[in-house]
Design a protein around this nucleic acid. Structure first.
Lengths: 138, 138
DNA sequence: CCGAATCCCATAAGATACTG
DNA sequence: CAGTATCTTATGGGATTCGG
């Protein structure tokens, strides 16, 4: 690994080591889908069981109907959640985690755990970045 | 699954059971930050060691300079990565995972692993959703 | 030359009034 | 109750340009 162009090699040889170029494509696809602002939150919130549209809206403060509907539809299309509509007089629609979504859910939980453990560190760093003009930032 | 997540797991009684409202706030903040289109990808790609600006651009096909710079700066401000600029004749800037980012990196790896394991299932579902006009969609 | 900022446009997200 | 329509705003991407 230490030849003349050692530094370049690090990037080019063992390169992308665990992330082969052909995997890059669907990693991006999956990350684009589940890694957006709301998908993970919806998946996290669905862990206790099926929820109705309004319940989701209540439990995820700040989401708009537009985004709720949109994200639910995407997750449904991807097979991560299921949608069950009951043709009753007061219309009732329940969303639940599909088996596929349950696997992702565990990872989301870890992410949330990580967020819980480190959010104050992040906040500290973020604050310092704003108040520390000493470094290389204009 | 670690205790960090386990803490949330424990209670499942009422509404918002495992995700107390006060936690919701920073969960959203962290998810907003790392859950965008590129942050995770950058973190994933940095696992092999420091990378230069152009290397990142090469290893993350599709990212624009604008977004690369922007996302790098955010990650840097949050203390997830470090930026080292060498005032050399051919300018060289290296980005590396900071300790904080390394923790997140492991979770990102799991997400990528999950993506690798299930991307074809997702694709199947996605395709079916597109070709199955029979169900409850408009 | 490499790293990054700026301008301009396309698209996605947000708010909310409205409908089946 | 669940979701759509529509308007506005924020964000992302491409090309170009500046700076070291």
């Amino acid at each position: 690994m230490q030849d003349s162009a050692g530094r370049e090699m690090a990037a080019a040889a063992g390169p992308c080591a665990n992330i082969p170029a052909d995997h890059m494509a669907f990693i991006r696809q999956v990350l684009d889908r589940v890694g957006d602002k709301w998908s993970m939150l919806i998946i996290a919130v669905l862990r206790d069981g099926p929820l109705r549209y309004t319940d989701l809206q209540r439990q995820i403060p700040g989401i708009s109907q537009r985004m709720l509907t949109h994200t639910l539809r995407q997750l449904q299309d991807d097979g991560l959640i299921t949608r069950t509509a009951y043709a009753e007089v007061p219309p009732r629609v329940e969303y639940a985690l599909a088996p596929l979504g349950r696997g992702l859910h565990e990872i989301v939980l870890q992410l949330i755990g990580w967020a819980a453990d480190h959010h104050d560190e992040i906040r500290t760093h973020r604050a310092r970045a704003g108040t520390a003009p000493s470094s290389s930032r204009s």
